[in-house]
Every structure is written in structure tokens, then in C-alpha cells.
Simulated assay, not measured.
Amino acid sequence: MLITAACSSGSGDAKSKGGSGAQHSASGSTQPSGSASPTVQAAAYSKLPDPCAVLSKNTLSDLVPKGASSGKKGGSDDPSSRGSCSWSSLDNNGVKGSQFRWLNVSLLRFDSDTARGAGDTQAHTYFGQQVKDAEAVDGAKNTKLIPLSGTGTEATAVRYDLNKKEGLFKQQTVVARVENVVVTLDYNGAGLAGEKTPDADELTKAAEKAIKEAVGAVSSANDTSSSGSGTGSSASPSKQASKSPSKSASSSASPSKSATKQS
């Protein structure tokens, strides 16, 4: 009996010690030796062109004939990431009325960032939001969405009518994305004081031509070997969104305000 008890006791201790050792070994084997740092693809474009120089003199003469040389650059705390320029034109025909035109080009560049993702992905999201905002303008009538081809990576034109106290304004908002840069072009026209309302199709064609030039200017400003910082060294997209050119464009693009100043 004493011998049996002694053997049983020794066997139990061995199992207990063996089980504890196995658990310790298994626990130790699951400890990570280290984790790789997250990476994100670098943005294609690292800079922007001068927003007041993205359109040729001929194009400006067509869109804003009386204001081709009156480009006004918008304020920016980081010209490499955001910029805008606007032009206004008033062709005064005396008692026959006046033809008014207003043009604004806004550029917004997104850097790749490990927290926010690739620059082109962020730009795609912003592109979609710009189109939605253009479709949802208060008071807009006869809104029409026109997908465009051959203009950057993706492009869409939104046109609509705005009936203001000065007259009926024909508005075109064209949004295009090329890689990690979004270009938004706002162009409107109106016949004031009895002048004929401009043709919406003609204004849209002019705006489409202009957006292609602006997109080309963005590509030309960046060498094919140029790439943005993958760590988001420039202005962060969150700050860009809070100071979005679309907001400044919306306030300055108000046909009633523009027409009032020109009148």
C-alpha cells in the first residue's frame, strides 16, 4: 500500500509539472517578435500649378471676354495643396442690357497618409462629394448630370438654372479628378436688364473645354517621375477638407452677389 501510494503521488506530480511546462512553452511561442510599419502608396502628384495660369488666354477670352485679364487668386496657406482663381465679365450693352459671366477654378491635392490612405483614394471620395454638393444646390432647377470622358481619371458636369433677382443664371459646375488632385470649375452666365439668357449648351461646352485645360495644367506641373510624400508631409487632407475650395467657391460664386457687384 505504501509503495502504491508513493508511485501514484510521483506520477501526478510529473503530469502536473509537464502540463505546466507545455502551457508555458505554448504561451511563449505566441509572443510576436515584432510588427512591420504600415505603408501606403505615394501620391502621383506633389504640387499644383498657379490656379490663375491653368487656362489659356484664348479660353479666358471665350468664357469671360471682358475679364480675361482680371483673374483674382484666392487665399491659401499651402499653395502646393490648394488654390483657386476667379474671373468676372460684364458686357454692358446700355439700354439693351448686359451679359454677365463668372468663372472660378479650384484645385485641391491630397497626399498619401498611413492614417487616411492613398492620395488618389481620398481624391476620389472628395470628387464624389463635390458632385453631390453641386446637385444639391438650394433653388436649383432643371438639374442635369453629365458624365465626361477623356478628362482626367474621372469627370462629371452638373448644370442647372438659378432664378435670381438680377435674372436667370445658367450654372455649370464641372468636377474632374486626375490621380490625387481634384479640379472644380464653376461657370455661370446671365442676361441682365432684359438681355437674352445665354444658351446652356454653349456654356457647358465652354466649361468642358476649360476643365480639360486645367487638368492638363496639373499634369504638366508634375514630372512623370514626381511623386508625393507617402507620409503626408504636406497639408493634411483633414485640413484640406475643412478649408475646401468648394466652400469658398460657393460663397463667391453666388450669382446674385457677383451680379450685384458688377451692376
Results as ranks from 00 to 15, higher is better:
134 A>K: 03
194 G>P: 03
176 A>H: 00
184 T>I: 13
139 G>E: 09
158 V>A: 00
188 N>A: 14
184 T>D: 08
172 Q>K: 12
172 Q>A: 15
123 A>V: 05
187 Y>T: 01
146 I>Q: 14
152 G>N: 02
145 L>P: 01
123 A>Y: 06
186 D>G: 11
125 T>S: 14
119 G>Q: 06
180 N>H: 12
162 L>C: 05
121 T>V: 10
139 G>D: 09
125 T>V: 12
170 K>C: 08
195 E>N: 13
159 R>F: 03
150 G>F: 05
125 T>P: 04
169 F>C: 10
161 D>R: 00
153 T>R: 05
139 G>P: 03
138 D>V: 10
144 K>G: 11
182 V>N: 04
149 S>V: 06
134 A>F: 04
122 Q>T: 06
193 A>S: 14
168 L>G: 04
145 L>S: 12
187 Y>P: 03
127 F>G: 00
120 D>G: 04
139 G>Q: 08
144 K>F: 10
125 T>R: 15
164 K>V: 07
144 K>H: 12
193 A>I: 09
155 A>I: 09
178 V>R: 07
143 T>K: 15
125 T>H: 13
136 A>C: 12
166 E>M: 15
131 V>K: 02
140 A>F: 11
181 V>W: 01
188 N>H: 14
177 R>Q: 14
185 L>Q: 02
146 I>K: 14
152 G>M: 00
121 T>W: 08
126 Y>W: 09
143 T>Y: 13
156 T>K: 01
190 A>N: 12
169 F>M: 09
195 E>Q: 12
126 Y>D: 08
187 Y>I: 01
180 N>P: 05
136 A>S: 15
193 A>L: 14
153 T>P: 10
184 T>N: 11
190 A>E: 07
165 K>T: 12
164 K>D: 12
180 N>C: 06
148 L>K: 08
177 R>M: 08
194 G>C: 07
131 V>S: 03
130 Q>T: 06
120 D>Y: 12
173 T>D: 13
126 Y>H: 07
165 K>N: 09
143 T>M: 15
143 T>V: 15
177 R>I: 02
169 F>E: 08
159 R>D: 13
126 Y>P: 01
168 L>Q: 07
154 E>V: 13
167 G>T: 01
149 S>I: 05
163 N>R: 08
169 F>H: 09
166 E>W: 11
156 T>D: 01
143 T>G: 11
191 G>H: 03
121 T>E: 14
181 V>Y: 04
120 D>F: 11
147 P>R: 14
180 N>K: 08
183 V>S: 02
167 G>N: 04
137 V>Q: 10
124 H>M: 13
186 D>P: 03
146 I>V: 13
129 Q>C: 11
124 H>F: 12
173 T>N: 11
189 G>Y: 10
149 S>A: 11
166 E>S: 12
176 A>N: 07
153 T>D: 10
165 K>Y: 06
161 D>Y: 00
181 V>Q: 02
